[in-house]
Amino acid sequence: MSLILISIAYLAYAAFWVRLSLHAVVWLRAARQQAAGPSAAPGKPLHAFAMTLIDLLLFRRLFASNKPLWLGSWAFHTAFFIVILRHLRFFLEPVPDCIVRVQPFGVFAGYLMAFSLAYVIFLRTATKTKYVSYQNYIILGLVFLISATGLLMRNYFPPDLVDVKSFVMGLVAMRPAPLPAGFFFSLHFFFVLLLVPFLPFHLFTAPFVAFEARKREFRLDKVMHDR
């Protein structure tokens, strides 16, 4: 079991990078092909950057479109981020002070993540959303399972944290240590491995698109009002 999960872990890790590289090759090829021409007037990049930060931190665009969904989606992404920060304690030695301080919030975020996810799934099914993306539901379901198994471990079936840490650090250092005991840990870990190669790409690309959108908005007034 230990060997299988460790192998899957490296495979999932490799799959993620292969996927990212394939996308990057397409982006870079497009950058090379791009026709040269007069470039658009700069769109106040600093101002746009500051506004993009607000857009991203507060999910402003979603807020403008759908407030109930915004609530769930914002809570989910924020909680997910804090949970990841909390998990960094397994990857870093010594554990940085900021990660130590985040731990209590991390527990709360774990609950918030599961509940907000359930709320988002409920909202999307109950409100007869016009467009249903099954791929999205699979990913959301997977994340829900990850958070549910995480909470089960936190409350009822705690694994040996020292074992968990040496296992994770071993994986990262390419010197795999034995899998910590506990069914729920294996399950939790397995679900995470399933998610890694399929992480939605908007996580990496949406910030860039949001920044470009802001710059475009600032530029719009210049298209016909220049000179």
Binding site: S65, K130, N136
Partner: peptide, 13 residues
């Protein structure tokens, strides 16, 4: 545009 294609969250809004 390629990055935009990757960035759609399929939210349907």
């Amino acid at each position: 545009q390629l990055i935009e294609i990757d960035a759609c969250t399929q939210c349907g809004e």
